[in-house]
Amino acid sequence: MTITLSHVLFVLFGLMVLGGAIAVVTVRNLFHAALWLMLVFFGMAGLYVLLEAPFFAAAQLFIYMGAIGILIIFAIMLTRAFMRQPMPRANEQWWLAALLTAVLLGVLVFLILQNIRPNIMAEAVPESTIHILGVTLVDPTGYALPFEVASVLLVMALIGAVTIVRER
């Protein structure tokens, strides 16, 4: 197996994601943790590009770095108390979180081992993946119902936000 540029890039983006993720959970300053999270999101976008899914790469930048990242930073800034005193890193439910994470890791490893295929990158990705995505999203035999349900979900999120404001 020859090492190509895409292998090198895969390792780089992988390191970016993993290193960033480790930094997110170990860094004391919450604001810095949020910034490390941005690096993770960027690395994920790079991995999507390597998987020949440019739409998802852009969506990753767009939603995760653009919207969710901002939301997280805003949430941190609204809780000022965190900024000055460094909090203990773990709370009393750490064992539950560890258990759940271990279970999730087990399930993921199991699924990956089940579905491993040697030449997955050799299969050509069609140029018009976005068109196929568009067709299946509105096809009644495809994902038409989830598509509309997603809209309802978004509406509920907005109404929930309104309720939070009204309580204040």
């Binding site: 852009a58 969506a59 653009g66 976005i130």
Partner: peptide
């Protein structure tokens, strides 16, 4: 993804 690429980068730079 053309124009979506631009929107994505513009949005990602907000933080």
């Amino acid at each position: 993804i053309g124009i979506f690429y631009i929107m994505a980068f513009a949005s990602a730079a907000l933080f």
